[in-house]
Simulated assay, not measured.
Amino acid sequence: MRILIVEDELKMASYLRKGLTEASYTVDIADNGRDGLFLALHENFDLVVLDVMLPELNGFEVLRRLRVQKQTPVLLLTARDTIDDKVAGLELGADDYLSKPFAYAEFLARIRSLLRRAPRGTRDVLTIADLEVDLIRRRVRRGETRIDLTAQEFALLQLLAERQGEVLTRTFITSQIWDMNFDSDTNVVDVAVKRVRAKIDNSFDKKLLHTVRGMGYVLEDRS
């Protein structure tokens, strides 16, 4: 997923980008409101982290103009902690509001919560090679073969299919499917991937679910 951070404190922006990148998000940064608004309007982001006190255009004005054209989820980030400021931001269309200073763990939890609430893409069926993942009927097929998955296995396959071609780390997968912090001693992801692979790959010549050593897993057609 792709996140835009609009923050003029470069040290703060760099810190947040480092943490989000480690959590497997793609992050862009703008250091003023005008550039942030341009990027938010002309690029496709899953979430915007928007500081209120910005040069050129303040965060409230950026949010007001953004909402005219887009409904991208927005987390307001600011040192202003008055009730009036919070109400103003929410009435302009902010989805959440976090006051500085804050703990990074809370920031990441807010990000994950907003991304879970955000509507998914408009496609009802995800396809890769001869694999079809029907998001409405919750059905999976490879060619003419129906594949039965548990709810957890389907969630894992859906995550991989929505981001096909992207290497997803174990940390990211656990945060999205199990909503928990990754424990390096836990092999829950490897076990789940093994079960899904057995169902969608083992009986077929073309393999789609690949392990990227030292990084994670990717669903892609390598033929």
Rank of each mutant, 00 (worst) to 15 (best):
W178C: 00
D183T: 13
N181Y: 01
D96W: 03
T211S: 15
V27C: 08
S99D: 04
R195M: 12
L114E: 03
F107H: 08
T72N: 08
L57I: 13
L77N: 14
K194T: 10
V167G: 01
L54G: 05
T127G: 01
L20Q: 05
S223T: 14
G143V: 03
R170H: 15
R195F: 09
E132Y: 11
E220R: 15
V191F: 11
Y217I: 02
E91R: 12
S14P: 03
D201W: 07
A88Y: 05
R17T: 04
S113K: 12
L126V: 07
A198Y: 10
V133H: 08
R163N: 15
K207H: 09
F154W: 10
D35T: 13
R110I: 04
K207W: 07
L135G: 07
K11W: 03
L39P: 01
F154P: 03
G93M: 00
D134K: 05
T26M: 10
D8M: 06
L90W: 07
R65V: 11
G33V: 13
G19N: 13
I177H: 12
K199W: 05
E106H: 13
D84E: 15
D31K: 10
A109N: 08
R123P: 00
D46L: 07
Q164G: 00
L50H: 03
F154E: 02
I147Y: 11
N187K: 13
L219N: 10
